[in-house]
Nucleic acid binder design. Sequence first.
RNA 1: GCGGGGAUAGCCGAGCGGUAAGGCGACGGCCUGCUAAGCCGUUUCCCUUUGGGAGCGGGGGUUCGAUUCCCCCUCCCCGCGCCA
Length: 439
Amino acid sequence: MIDVNVLRKNPEILFESQKRRFQDDGIVREAIRLDSEWRELLRRSNSLKSDKNKLVREIGDRIRSGRGADDIKIKAAEIDREIERLETSLKDTETRRDEVLKKIPNIVDSSAPVARDETGNVAVLFDGTARVFRDDKDSFLEQSNQRMKYELSDFKPKSHVDLLVKRGLANLESAAAVAGSRFYYLLGDLVLLESTLENYALKFLQKKGFMLLEPPFMMNREATNGATDFTAFEDTLYKIEGEDLYLIATSEHPIAAYLSNTILEEGSLPLLFAGISPCFRKEAGAHGKDTKGIFRVHQFNKIEQFAFVRPDDSRIYHERLLENAKEFYRALEIPFRIVDIATGDLGNVASRKFDIEAWYPAQGQFREVVSASNVLDYQARRLKVRYRGKEGNVFVHTLNSTLIATTRTLVAIIENNQQEDGSIVVPKVLRDAMGKEVI
RNA sequence: GCGGGGAUAGCCGAGCGGUAAGGCGACGGCCUGCUAAGCCGUUUCCCUUUGGGAGCGGGGGUUCGAUUCCCCCUCCCCGCGCCA
């Protein structure tokens, strides 16, 4: 949620932000209108309550001194009725104002590339050496702006779907029969690889000073709505029938809600959490996209970086979370590029966002594996996460970044490390813990 | 699931129909060669701030007036039951 004081005192900031996002500013105007209506109603209501409180005190005085108070009791009752009328419309206006206010997107960072949609995203860095199949060379050169090292591969890389099924490392047909499409059974060494990868990721973040955290995998509506815009997520979330519970779509949400309604000591910041949890997503709107395999699925495990920081520090920590992810994928020797997400493609919550897109040789494409967002105080305001600053309580800034979404990272390993015979080379950093060099 | 006990400000904690004590911590000031102590003030949120209003886990009710009485709900603690 944006700061209502910005709406009152500097609405031009919001108009400008909406323009950069290529979004209509009607929502901002509507919020301004409802807010001034609300303030007028509040003023009138408070003034009546003040009158009422004076009367109550007088009634008390009179009763204690043995005088009658029936006449002013009648007056007090009249004021009560008037207050009740005002309060009703006050609450109604407040509800409508808050609904609109919550829908106003975060203020975009002035350095984010301005463009209407994802075609305006800017690749800012290429890392690693990509294995590229001969037929994909031209397409690769274009996607990498000729700024990335590569080596040509003579054999045509198999898609992870074929590899996994043929090698008996996953069963997708049974999963479809048992749970539906976009589910999977992982088998044998792939389970071990996943587990080793997760373990490696957790140790990696613990060494970087993150508190490891496994959250509840379900949240009630109120908490969910604090962590994100509920209406925007309704197509994503699975609801538990008969309960006020939703399966989490990412541990970002329970981590964000972890400190809701708390006031922290300034010295305790920054607070860094590494969340591990399964993620459940309906993928409603994704019909036809990535229908095969485990790239886009209803359930996957994710290890997430999350930071609560002082406002002045959020840019530095945004950089740091991204840096961690870069270091991690470099260690896995997965080639990737970093993309600076354009204003029109940011989503409501982020002020600035960088994605890491791994190179998938079988798909011949860079695809998202990491998304690192600076949310500023947008989430913290809604959840009321503050710290005691020199001049009162201040909302913290929150940042989040994937470290691994297991399925996508596994697919990247599988596609990049496959050999002609279909075996998969285990990344060097995982070999000791895995106990194998090849699967 | 059953019975009993709880929830008060950042934390601890009193009040139990008359309008939120006290302590700790934090911040500011006074004092001080410096620190500590001591003293004074501030320390929930909202509004158009020389002023008002709301707020005692949440929601309703009784009352001129509710932290206090009544009802419903949530969570925590103790015991019993069930159980990976």
